[in-house]
Design a protein around this nucleic acid. Structure first.
Length: 263
DNA sequence: CTTCTCACA
DNA sequence: TGTGAGCA
């Protein structure tokens, strides 16, 4: 009764493919204990240890080629460095996943918001927020691929953010992205008249804007800032061929106008 | 069941 | 850095 096992048994024990084991052999990191008369590779307990070491190093991101060097010549100190390096990479990956997690939560949240709030005018409290200027264009052109390519600084995960179009008094539209630090543009805190809606084309958007101004006039709101259009393109993923927009415009709050009336 | 080689991502 | 097909 021999104590060695065949390649498929080893593959089973270690949860890897037969192919992979032969691949490691080809790269010179794992030799069988011996080869049987029938040309079958046979593996013993030493190879099981050896293979688990290889798999561990692979998990740490070490290339098969480097594993060869590791196992022949690495000092304890070199292993320590290797582990530190892997740790930093894991941290980075963790960051990446956390950001993805945050994004998913945000999509679900905004999706909820949209379902409960769409097509209703409401007053929203906004804290002061800062934006980085991204693209500027005159108000009758709309974004196209060329514009983006020519003007845009590269922004990672662009369409995962809320893109703010700010229509100020001049005939320029500024596309902005929110920043944490004070940036190019600042939106004042206050009460914003707001509506969000699904839009099929440019015309529907124009209508939406017109209706907002009509509504504001009907309610006798005093408009106190630029019109802000927020595009949430990540929500458009969910509803085909429609874009999610929110309009916001700062209005003078009741408190302010009362104060104004008294003085 | 194993071996090897080849093409393919 | 592996996988899958095909062959002996």
């Amino acid at each position: 009764m021999k104590s060695e096992i065949t390649i498929s048994e080893l593959a089973n024990v270690m949860n890897v493919s037969v192919h992979q084991i032969r691949y490691f052999e080809e790269k010179g990191v794992l030799e069988p204990a011996y080869t049987d008369n029938n040309q079958y590779r046979m593996y013993g307990i030493d190879q099981i240890y050896q293979l688990s070491h290889i798999l561990l190093l692979r998990k740490l991101g070490v290339s098969v080629q480097s594993i060869k060097d590791c196992m022949t010549s690495y000092s304890a100190d070199q292993y320590r460095k290797l582990l530190h390096h892997s740790l930093r990479e894991i941290d980075a990956e963790l960051m990446r996943l956390k950001e993805l997690q945050q994004f998913i939560k945000k999509v679900l949240q905004e999706q909820q918001n949209f379902n409960s709030q769409s097509n209703h005018y409401q007053i929203k409290r906004r804290d002061t927020t800062y934006f980085a200027r991204w693209i500027e264009m005159d108000s009758h052109t709309k974004p196209n691929a060329k514009l983006l390519a020519e003007q845009a600084k590269h922004v990672p995960n662009l369409f995962e953010s809320d893109i703010h179009y700010i229509y100020d008094d001049s005939s320029t539209t500024t596309l902005c992205l929110e920043t944490h630090e004070p940036g190019d543009i600042c939106l004042l805190e206050g009460n914003y008249l707001s509506i969000q809606s699904l839009v099929n084309d440019e015309e529907e958007l124009e209508q939406m804007i017109e209706q907002l101004y009509d509504y504001a006039a009907a309610q006798s709101y005093t408009l106190a800032g630029p019109l802000i259009l927020i595009e949430r393109s990540y929500l458009s993923l969910i509803s085909k061929n429609e874009l999610h927009f929110e309009l916001q415009i700062l209005i003078e709050s009741a408190a302010n106008s009362e104060k104004g009336n008294r003085t």
